[in-house]
Every structure is written in C-alpha cells, then in structure tokens.
Amino acid sequence: MPIIEAKNLTYTYPGGTEPAIKNVSLTIEKGDFVILTGPSGCGKTTLCRCFNGLIPHFYAGRLEGELSVARLNVIERPIYEMARHVGLVFQNPENQLFALSVEKDVAFGLENLGLPRDQIRERVDWALQMTGIEELRERAPHELSGGQQQRVAIACVLAMQPEVMVLDEPTSFLDPLGAQKIFEVVSELNRKLGVTVILVEHRLDLASKHANHVIIMNERTIVLDDEPQEVFDSESARLIGVGIPKATKLWVMLRQNGVRLGRAPVNPEEAVQLLRGVLQRDRS
C-alpha cells in the first residue's frame, strides 16, 4: 500500500525564477526504508519539505502537481495535521532544539498532541533510551556537542511515533559508530513498528544496508528509483557521481578489468559472502 504518492510535483520558492524540483513523481510503499541521495543542490531537501507540508504552507511559493502522504492531500491539509503523521529531522539540529533541557525538548511535541502525563513520560523515556541519550536528560541542548544534539532531535521525532520519518542527513555531525547506531535505531523502528523511513544521506557506505529502496535525484528531478543493488550498480549512478558503497565500487572496478563476479554487493557482508564463494570454487 503506497503511503506517499507524488505526481508531477513542481515547486518554485517565492522569488525564485527556476523550480527547485521539477516533475517529481514517485511512489513509496508503507514500510519502505528509502535512501534519497544525489549531488548537492539537486532538490532533496526541497522534496523532504513537501512531505510534511512545510512546502507549500510555510515556505509559500508555487507548488504544482499532486502529493498525498499518509492518505492526506498535503496541499489541502495544514502542517499541524501533517505533523502527526510525518516527522522531520533537519540537517542542522540547532534549527530544531530550543528547550532548556533535553527532556523538555523531547516532551514538547507530545504535550502539543495533548497526551496524558504518564504517557508523555513513558514515550520520552523510550525515545531517550532508543537514541542512547538517557544520561543527557537534564542537560541543555545548546550545550551539547553536534552529535549529541542530533540524537536529541531524532529523539524528539521518535517520541511522536509518526508513520513516516524523514531524516535529512541526520548523521552529518556524528562519528561513524554514532551514525551506525542511529541507522540501526531507525532501521529497528522501520522493521518492528513499520515506520516508513526516508533518509537523505551521502554516506551510503554506512546507510545502504538498511534500505530496500533507493531514489537518486539530479538537477531537480528523480533520475533513478529502484532497489539498492540495481541503482548502485547502474551506469547512470556513476555518471551522476553518487558515492556508491565501496563494496559495490570494487565490483565495478573488477568488471572494468574483465573480472565478472556476477551481481554486485551493496555492503561488505555481501561482498565477503560472494568472494568466499568464488575463492572456494577456485580452490577446489
């Protein structure tokens, strides 16, 4: 069942002469884990802002085409209604955090939903635990490191338990293990609770193993939309200059040398498995 459907979405920011996204059509199924990637300035962030109605309701400008998210027509519904269904984690956590303690920041959205007190407490505890920041509970968000702030921002969205989570380069400020942990948390929410995830990410080496769907944008529109393996191993991904996972790249490079090992892996675990098969066959 599709949870997001866009048809010929074209959007121009107020005062802009050219559209920031052009003729974007896509279908995202409920429960998908989507990686959305592409060169800087290709329109990824703009597209994300459409999913919860920030575009067109907050940014104004001109939006044409159709967009339905969680069975709601985004163009007609107000942001506060969309916000119950779609959680957005921004690139820069400083834009998102404002309370005097981490706990209060995470509780804020829940208070706005009008949830009972003990349920708020429970969800805050759960979200802090899931993101590994329980010990920061009493700290002021603006005094935390960039990586810690990003975890707080993610906890705020997690606590709302939205159907769709949109994360715009959420791990930019995190160290690799921190990033991996966030991807695992998000992946677990995706698998266990069926939350649909849209992750904007350049660090495909770490993220790609969790995804079942990859969308690549270039020059303000979608150019590739398929399973990870198909997308990463395609000629066009290389031409656009998307940083395909190193494991996939190894296959592509070997193929250039005339070594054909079949279907390319999208992560190191798969590569090990495939190479072990080849080496074992060679041995016998």
């Binding site: 770490l206 190191p268 190479l275 080496l279």
Partner: peptide, 18 residues
C-alpha cells in the same frame, strides 16, 4: 575511537582464511 573500519578492511578480514 568509535570508528567503523573501511569497507575494504571489513571485506579482507572476512577473507583472512584464504
């Protein structure tokens, strides 16, 4: 140091017995 080894290191460690 909270570093994930490079993908190539992960692959070759997985093939050490060859």
């Amino acid at each position: 140091a909270s570093i994930v080894p490079p993908q190539m290191t992960q692959i070759f460690v997985g093939l050490a017995d060859f």
